[in-house]
């Protein structure tokens, strides 16, 4: 179980290094997605399966898709086709794919071999999290909703003004 953690940690650090040193935004995004998935594996190994699922669904699934959409929006123009061709060259996706394959191997190993968790970790189940979230932390849920509403209004405001100017 420990060796899985160290492999996932190495994948995270490598992918993050590629994020901050890469010159192409799409490649950096690919590497960041791999880093987030590796972080989800680490969350699982630390005994937080609910957080691992949320990391993949919300972070790698929703937030990174937003980033990809914006990067694609910013690259409009006649050069786009040539650019896309260059983005699809094998040298670009082979690094993140290898890192993701390492993570896939880890997941297969966990499913097949079902290794015992490390001794000092019990794991916090989603039920306990939910009971605590809607018990003593219910005010935090309200605060989160108060944070999300300005986020929604702000994003709508920014996007609406942009559409008006372009027309």
């Amino acid at each position: 179980m420990e060796i899985l953690f160290y492999i996932a940690a190495a994948v995270t650090v490598l992918a993050t290094l590629r994020v901050i040193t890469h010159l192409h935004a799409v490649h950096a995004l690919l590497n960041l997605i791999v880093a987030l998935i590796a972080l989800a594996v680490i969350f699982y190994l630390l005994g937080a399966p609910f957080a691992a699922a949320l990391e993949i669904i919300v972070y790698a699934g929703a937030i990174m898709v937003l980033f990809v959409f914006v990067v694609m929006l910013l690259n409009q123009g006649p050069l786009t086709v040539e650019q896309e061709r260059r983005w699809l060259a094998p040298g670009i996706w082979i690094g993140p794919s290898l890192l993701a394959l390492v993570l896939l191997g880890e997941v297969f190993y966990i499913i097949m071999a079902n290794p015992a968790p490390s001794q000092d970790l019990v794991g916090v189940q989603p039920k306990e999290v939910a009971i605590a979230l809607y018990g003593p932390y219910v005010i935090a849920v309200e605060l989160a909703s108060m944070l999300l509403l300005p986020g929604l209004i702000g994003a709508y405001h920014m996007g609406r003004r942009l559409g008006k100017e372009r027309r």
């Binding site: 914006v70 910013l74 989160a144 999300l148 986020g151 702000g154 920014m158 996007g159 942009l162």
Partner: peptide
């Protein structure tokens, strides 16, 4: 996670602007 989602949606709107 909530904070990151709210922050990213507003910040990417600012980037487009």
């Amino acid at each position: 996670l909530t904070l990151a989602a709210a922050e990213v949606s507003v910040a990417l709107g600012i980037v487009l602007q």
